[in-house]
Amino acid sequence: MKMMKLTCLLAFTLAAVLAATGCKNHRPVGVTQLPRGAGSTIPEAPPGPTMSGEQSPSGIPLPNIEDINGMAADRAQLASYTVHFAYDSAAVRKSEKANVQAVADALSRDSSAKLMIEGNCDERGTDEYNRSLGERRALAVRKELVKHGIDPMRVFTKSFGKDRPVDPGHDESAWSKNRRDDFVLLHPKSGS
């Protein structure tokens, strides 16, 4: 409690100094203005498709995490269908649709299987921003799979942000490989 009081006291005391700063000059000297056009270098994502049967303004709710307890992960089967993304975008590009189709086909063939989509980013964004972007990438492909008729309750997502690059390089060639969704097929353990 004492520590908190001291902290409060300290905060308010310094508020006075900072506030005084604001009084004197609302346009601080020495401000480096960033180029205003910089935002436009980011490719604009097309508006997301309107889903019929969407259950929330956020998207299609995820299933219970307990539903995949005890399932066996198969990273090999769908390894060649990794979906890649443009910089700072979670839009599924036309060039990636065949891979999404292949994943949908695999799920259709094996109705006992479930899917974990792992979203990843290149190293350029900030940490937590990338963790959210990676999740949005995984969710974007999940949405596509639902359009292919896959039950959303079979599809799970996980974001690694920028922490699991496939290429440790620091150039576009590496970055383009790292902006991706990997697909892990989940099988019921034999006997269960």
Partner: peptide
């Protein structure tokens, strides 16, 4: 399921803000 990330504790310590994607988006 999905992301459970970016915790931030309220000034009085009684609540936690966070990012979850369980509803279908972060």
């Amino acid at each position: 399921s999905g992301s459970n990330i970016s915790p931030a504790v309220s000034p009085d310590g009684s609540r936690v803000a966070m990012i979850l994607s369980k509803s279908g988006s972060p």
